[in-house]
């Protein structure tokens, strides 16, 4: 197991805080002379320290997040409103509603009590997460290429690259997340659960709420309703950004 006290993070932190002895400092400075990435790392650490020293801004951000949670009462949000979020979604929603209304009328004549199927619920609620445009240094070539392919909706090749990246670094949470979405987009719903579960089990990170939401949708698509129900129930009682959508889906889900 790695000794954190001797890690690069610790070394840089000690340098920033002037805790290195002259000998250690000399050795480190020599290393820096020939390594641009190391110098960038020190600059990044310094900037992070500055950013997290802005206690007032951090408190304001936290306060705003709490207020957003309290003041927005998405109980009033309906499924219809959530579908009309952008032009693309409006077009998709319009197309879906045509199919859905036509389907519902047919179902009415066949069986008036038929609830919305899991497959239809998936189609109503699922939309891929926005593509990310990234630019970067040569060392991240594969990462950049992967996201470019994702952005271009070339999910098969994006997934191949994401899987290669994850073989090297399974803790790369954004790559895990977009690998999950790429799996959904290529119809591999069962495979998508693995990266989403990895994210859910990784302490706290910015992708946890999203991973929970999409894993619930995967279970819906796989017709494993009990598991989907348990996940949406969990989301609906949390502070997740998806809690109100989860509440709506729970109303429609088949028990």
């Amino acid at each position: 197991m790695k000794n954190i006290e001797n890690s690069l993070v610790a070394l840089i932190d000690r340098k920033i805080n002037n805790e290195l002895n002259p000998d250690e400092l000399r050795k480190l400075d020599k290393l820096f002379e020939n390594d641009d990435h190391l110098r960038d790392d020190v600059a990044l650490h310094q900037e992070i320290d500055e950013a997290i020293s802005e206690t007032n801004v951090l408190e304001l951000r936290q306060n705003l997040n709490n207020i957003h949670e309290q003041t927005q009462n998405p109980e009033r949000k309906t499924l219809v409103r959530s579908l009309f979020r952008s032009k693309l979604h409006r077009i998709a929603a319009a197309a879906f509603f045509l199919v859905f209304i036509f389907g519902s009328i047919s179902l009415y004549f066949m069986n008036g009590d038929e609830p919305v199927s899991n497959d239809n619920l998936f189609r109503i609620y699922y939309q891929p997460d926005a593509a990310l445009l990234i630019r970067g240094q040569a060392e991240n070539k594969m990462l950049i290429e992967g996201f470019q392919k994702y952005e271009n909706r070339d999910y098969t090749n994006a997934l191949a690259l994401f899987n290669k990246l994850l073989a090297q670094d399974p803790d790369n949470i954004p790559v895990q997340f977009y690998a999950g979405i790429s799996n959904i987009e290529t119809g591999k719903y069962r495979n998508a659960l693995k990266p989403f579960n990895h994210i859910i089990n990784d302490d706290q990170n910015l992708y946890q709420d999203k991973a929970m939401w999409y894993s619930g949708l995967c279970y819906l698509k796989l017709n494993e309703t009990d598991k989907a129900f348990a996940i949406f129930k969990n989301i609906s009682t949390s502070n997740s950004a998806y809690k109100y959508k989860a509440k709506n889906i729970l109303k429609s889900i088949r028990n």
Binding site: I4, V9, D13, I48, I134, G136, D171
Partner: peptide, 26 residues
């Protein structure tokens, strides 16, 4: 306490570096 600081810092740095928006911002 010191060890915990380094662990937390390491988690933070890793998450930032792994965030695609980080590459957009540099």
């Amino acid at each position: 306490a010191k060890k915990r600081k380094y662990q937390c810092k390491e988690i933070l740095v890793k998450r930032i570096k792994n965030d695609p928006y980080y590459y957009k911002s540099i």
